Simulated scan of single mutants.
Amino acid sequence: MTTRRVEEDRGPAEIIAEDAVAEYLAAHPEFFERHPDLVAELRVPHAAGQAVSLIEHQVGVLRGQLRTERRRLVQLIARARNFEALSVRLHDLSLRLIAAQDPEQVEAVLREALCRQFDTEAVTLKLFPLESDDSDSDPKVAAFIQFLDRERSLCGPLDPEHNGILFGEQGGAIGSAALIPIRMDGRSGVLAIGSHDRGRFGTDMGTDLLDRLGEIVSQKLRTLHRIDG
């Protein structure tokens, strides 16, 4: 398409606007030094017949890389904001746990806060007396014995048996869960957080905040146990 044909396709207002831009750039050649990000968006033709010039190809590749990096930056910012929001909620929960006077209050605080602030439907805290003589015959202990040796939390869907043991009548509606190991003197257990959404707790989900929550709850329960003892 010739330059004259292009000019014929444009309206008078557009031609005047482009002329004004051209005049401004001619009068301010340092414009792109002050706005280097605009350079990556420019399309500068290179006469190469029907072939694409190497420079034009390189510029196209760089533009694609820039778009990819921008998307990654947006994703990282979104994750950082989400992590910050979760950290604030964990801090608030920690303060409420400090004020709890007994294990029953600890579980009540966890259930109310995790369901409300973390958008879940079920929370349960189960502790198992592993040093008891009949611990090996307890089906609840047997079902979670391998998990109790874990150092980190576990996320994902559970089978019906484990859902039933942890969440009782709610177990049938739980699509995914986070299992957080709890450690205290002479006992071990699990803090289970369940959601109807199968994608809420995925197997590839990061567990740093969940692990911190487990440490906080474990320490609180140890403190209460020593006071009672």
Results as ranks from 00 to 15, higher is better:
L38K: 01
E69Y: 03
A100I: 14
L130C: 05
L224T: 15
S195F: 00
E23V: 12
R34K: 11
Q75S: 14
A40Q: 11
G164W: 02
P45I: 14
M205W: 14
A80S: 15
L125N: 11
F32C: 01
R150P: 06
L110I: 11
I145T: 15
L125M: 07
R212W: 09
A113Y: 15
G194H: 03
H91R: 15
L93A: 02
V141N: 10
V44P: 02
R34T: 12
S137P: 01
L166V: 10
P160H: 14
K126L: 15
R43P: 10
I165Q: 03
L209K: 01
I193T: 04
R43E: 15
Q146H: 15
H28D: 01
L154P: 01
L130A: 06
G186N: 07
A22P: 01
A113P: 04
Q75N: 03
L93Y: 03
V141K: 06
R96P: 00
R89S: 07
R4Q: 14
H28Y: 00
R71S: 06
E33N: 04
R43V: 09
A13G: 09
V123E: 04
A143F: 06
E23W: 08
E41M: 10
P29F: 10
H91Q: 11
G189P: 11
E18S: 11
D19N: 02
